[in-house]
Amino acid sequence: MKLGLAQGYWGAAPQPNFVEMAQEAEKLGYDSVWSAETWGNDAFTPLAWIGANTETIKLGTAVVQLSGRTPTSCAMHALTLDMLSNGRLILGLGVSGPQVVEGWYGQPFPKPLARTREYIDIIRQVFAREERVTNPGPHYPMPYGGEDGMGLGKPLKPMVHPLRNKIPIYLGAEGPKNIALSTEIADGWLPLFYNPYDESVYASSLTNTKPDFQIAQMVTVNITDDIDAGLLGVKHFLSLYVGGMGAKGTNFHKNLFERMGYADEAEQIQNLFFEGKRDEAARVIPDELADAMALIGPKDRIRDRLQAWNDSKVTTLLVATTDKQQLRDMAELIL
């Protein structure tokens, strides 16, 4: 199993040691470092900063939101960063959700599967640089032929000659059809939640997985003697997504918890969240579920629990930590 460093999105500001953490991960033999975006920082710029201060570690976006950029704009960002980093980019993409897409980007949220398929096809055309980029639509028509246009659109190829014509593309996906789509058109999958002790919820979506298909999973790591306190932190993270990252009737994270067999808990968490009772909502998450999705406890305990991850379909464990010693400990345990 490979190791990566998950740095997530910023919140109010970046972690002050985010470059140092990436440099330490590179020294320790980590395969990749990943940056995220939401309605704040973008995913590419931190990786450019990291890439300028490292040599070999791969640079992954987990994930770039489709509605934030047109497909060709996203491809431009990707091929630019890939060239500047000497071929180290992994492009992670995701549709996000209707609250963010419509509320932050001011875009509609129609047919996420069809849009994703079109989006990736256009990006791959840019990377390939074999023909002028065209797409009939309906989501991203190129050249644009709408009645409100001037009718002067011209198919183009990128001026830049990509360093790599096949930059790896991973999809962030939660729904069964979206996960299955990732196995069809992408090189890897970025789950949000994963239980290595029970992979059945994803089994039907991964039936056509290619031999070299990658699954990179973020895992909260906390090497501590206080297991209960460590698990409570994980519960707060999980409950935020189940209760707060989505509308009452449309929450993809809540839907996943329901498919995992925690429908009653998911409903209770959401209700408590809407009542402003975040601490109570976090405590609804069962200990065994939080424990399964994270690596919490003394080093010997984590060493034992790593076996489930080694036996799973996950190919890269993305360590979510801001502590250099935890990075070193995980390298010792896995690498």
Rank of each mutant, 00 (worst) to 15 (best):
N86I: 00
R305H: 14
A247D: 15
Q65C: 02
G103I: 03
G297T: 02
Y30A: 09
E184L: 13
W10T: 06
P136D: 12
R115P: 05
N222P: 01
G145H: 10
M260E: 13
A308P: 12
L256E: 14
M1R: 11
V234A: 12
I302H: 09
P71I: 00
R328H: 05
T322H: 10
G249V: 10
T45S: 06
A320T: 02
V19A: 01
W104L: 07
M83F: 07
G175K: 10
F193N: 11
W39T: 08
E26L: 08
F18P: 04
M293Q: 15
Y241L: 14
Q23V: 05
P98F: 00
G149Q: 09
M330V: 08
W49E: 03
M142G: 08
K313A: 15
I167C: 06
A128R: 15
G146M: 04
R124G: 10
N178T: 11
L113A: 08
G137D: 05
M83H: 09
D300W: 01
N255D: 14
K248L: 14
E174N: 11
D323K: 09
V221D: 06
T207P: 09
L163K: 12
F18C: 05
E37G: 03
E20P: 01
A52Y: 02
M76N: 06
T207R: 14
V100W: 00
L256N: 09
I334Y: 13
L306A: 10
N255W: 03
N17H: 08
A22C: 06
R132I: 09
I185K: 03
Y170C: 06
E280H: 09
N251L: 11
N195G: 08
G92T: 01
M245P: 02
A294E: 06
A229I: 04
G261D: 10
V101H: 02
A247I: 01
S96R: 01
L28R: 03
P298T: 01
E131N: 15
L171A: 07
T61A: 04
I123L: 11
I285D: 08
K157A: 15
E184T: 12
L59T: 01
E24L: 07
V133A: 04
G145N: 12
S205R: 00
P136I: 00
G51M: 01
G40C: 03
G94P: 05
V126I: 10
L171T: 01
H161C: 07
I302N: 08
S204A: 14
G261S: 13
E267P: 11
W189G: 10
T38A: 08
L295W: 11
Q99R: 11
I334R: 13
P298S: 02
L91G: 03
V219C: 13
A186N: 07
H236Y: 12
G40V: 04
M21T: 03
I167L: 07
E265D: 13
W189A: 08
R301Q: 10
G243H: 11
W189I: 05
A128P: 08
Y9P: 03
L238M: 14
D212A: 14
M293V: 15
Q7I: 10
P168F: 05
G103S: 02
E199Y: 03
L93G: 03
T321A: 06
R129V: 12
L190W: 01
L306P: 09
K58T: 06
R301K: 11
M1L: 12
F127W: 04
Q7Y: 02
